[in-house]
């Protein structure tokens, strides 16, 4: 039996109005240049968020809205981190034949074939992955990039910190900051009373540091893993002249030009070749001894 008309007329709040959304105006062509490395793309987003974070407690935003702004910015940091992993996986699959081979049994949505350019089809590999789910970063690093997270390492700690951050993200995405019991338990904070996210400027600095640490630790570990697999797979031989083009591609595709410029990273090809040569020599000496 359908509801009585008198019941249908009940209004305890105002009525909705008609809206026509032209979703195409909500989006534009992807402006980011593909020549930029994933980590530099992340750095750009991160720095922008850091600037916006200064609005919190700056006096330009009402006190009651500062927490709201803080929460939105937290989501921004998490989102920028997710984008980093998506881009990094796709970039590594494109760059490294060993990783590409390891992913050749992966299924992708059929529509991705039309949506992505054939040169960026790798982007479809992570379409159905949410990097904010606990365990996902570790499993994606392992499954997609064959990077094992060493126990008691900086990377392991960075992932742990990020996954805690994602508990706050969960509350901000799904319940406007109200924290549920399982989120509270996973954060390791009191579970005896209801809590809500309260993100001030200090918290945002911590959030920015956690995401930055995770991206840097991951980037370094991925690069080390790729170089090592190239050495073991014979793609790098220790011959500087032969190795240099491949190493050059690695630096351009996965290195941070920002950090190279500031002197906080070393992309010098001579030194990279020397490290490769030292590793190749050590492996061959060990193999020789075993024989």
């Amino acid at each position: 039996m359908s509801r009585h008309t008198a019941i249908e007329a009940l209004n305890l709040c105002a009525q909705p109005a008609s809206i026509t959304a032209d979703w195409s105006v909500f989006v534009s062509s992807l402006s980011r240049t593909s020549s930029e490395s994933p980590i530099d793309t992340f750095y750009d987003a991160h720095q922008g968020l850091n600037k916006l974070a200064s609005l919190v407690q700056s006096g330009h935003v009402d006190v009651e809205l500062q927490n709201l702004l803080g929460g939105q910015l937290l989501l921004g940091y998490v989102s920028a981190t997710e984008l980093y992993f998506r881009q990094m996986i796709s970039r590594c699959v494109a760059l490294c034949p060993i990783i590409r081979q390891a992913n050749n049994q992966q299924m992708i949505p059929f529509g991705a074939l039309d949506y992505y350019h054939k040169d960026s089809l790798e982007s479809a590999l992570t379409e159905r992955v949410s990097f904010s789910e606990p365990g996902t970063i570790k499993s994606q690093l392992d499954g997609r990039l064959q990077v094992k997270v060493p126990s008691k390492s900086s990377l392991e700690r960075s992932i742990e910190d990020y996954e805690k951050l994602c508990q706050l993200r969960h509350s901000l995405i799904h319940s406007h900051g109200v924290i549920n019991s399982s989120n509270a338990a996973k954060l390791g904070i009191g579970t005896t009373k209801s809590l809500e996210a309260n993100i001030d400027l200090h918290c945002l600095q911590v959030v920015a540091s956690i995401t930055l640490n995770l991206v840097r630790d991951s980037n370094n570990e991925i690069v080390r893993s790729i170089v090592w697999s190239w050495i073991q797979g014979g793609l790098l031989t220790g011959n500087g002249r032969n190795d240099r083009p491949r190493l050059n591609r690695l630096v351009r595709q996965l290195g941070s030009s920002t950090d190279l410029t500031s002197g906080r990273a070393d992309g010098n090809l001579k030194r990279l070749s020397a490290s490769v040569k030292a590793a190749v020599l050590a492996i061959s000496t060990k193999a020789g001894k075993r024989r």
Partner: peptide
């Protein structure tokens, strides 16, 4: 710096090393 233990610049967003 806006606070003693700030890790990022409040004006340009750069990391404070």
């Amino acid at each position: 710096r806006v606070m003693e233990n700030a890790r990022f610049c409040s004006f340009c967003g750069a990391e404070l090393v």
